[in-house]
Amino acid sequence: MNMPQDHITEDMFKPVALGSEQNEKISKPTIGFWKDAWLRLRKNKAAIVGLVFIILIVLMSIIGPHLNKYGFDDQSLDRSNLPPKVTGLGWLGFGGVDAMSGSDAYEMKGIKDHFWFGTDTLGRDLWTRVWQGTQVSLIIAIVATLGDFIIGVAYGGISAFYGGRVDTVMQRFMEILIGIPNLILMILFILWLNPGMESIILALMITGWTGMARIIRGQTLKLKGQEFVLAARTLGSKDSRIIWKHLIPNVLGQIIITTMFTIPGAIFFEAFLSFIGLGIAPPNASLGSLNNDGFQNIQIYPYMAFFPALILSILMISFNLLADGLRDAFDPKMRK
């Protein structure tokens, strides 16, 4: 038997030429900006719960109003003040039992249909109204936030990117605007334009964009002086390329975090304005106006306040949890 080493001679070995290209190659797939953030967000259970609830509520606000045959402004005094009733959910309080008399309000009024969330004082179906109202509140919040985002990014970006006198003038103007309390500006604005969806959105936008503009300006000023921007400029990049390829990707995390905190703020202010009588006018509904109507009747018909209050609270909590989670995911340094 030959020993194995007899066959192995030195000339059987030759060095593998490893080019510098391969040397630098990363064997695992690179994790991009979005994937990295998602991997970190996924670990945050609270944020995921928030995200799931937001998706559910958004879906329900779209399909909810169409799930039964009642429109959001179908009035009928024959069926007013009916408590919620769902077949098989009587043990959960969905038995249609009137809180005062303790008997089935549907039998007393001779109503055969079931109203899942009950009806209001005018006999309008609360299920439809609650989801319709959620839809209105979400649209207001999202459009206003989008407006904040566009104005804020443009204003902050221009102010910081061009600097000098442009920056000074723009900053002075903004400081005065920030000096005027949001609430005051919003109330004056809505009184002038008359309450309604458009005026609420405009009022929220006028007061909301400054936060975004400040953050964008701060971040841009910080980035503008860094080496990679200088390098890009030296290599002859145009302003637009520097802005789109270097500055915006680097402030994207901040933009997303700020946006996510703006949405619950906008939902709150819409509800607040509706609550003090400057919001959506009837027969239209929003979460704020439904809460307001509900609390006016809470002593006799508690269910009228319960559902809008529940949806509004869940929505606010979910957005705050998700925003917290996103802040940790996009900017681990700011983890709080």
Partner: peptide, 22 residues
């Protein structure tokens, strides 16, 4: 803390009034 920040004060006040008061 998250509940306190998220739930609007008027919702909280309304519930408090209904349960504790009424």
């Amino acid at each position: 803390a998250v509940l306190g920040i998220s739930i609007p004060s008027f919702v909280f006040a309304g519930l408090l009034q209904y349960f504790v008061g009424v």
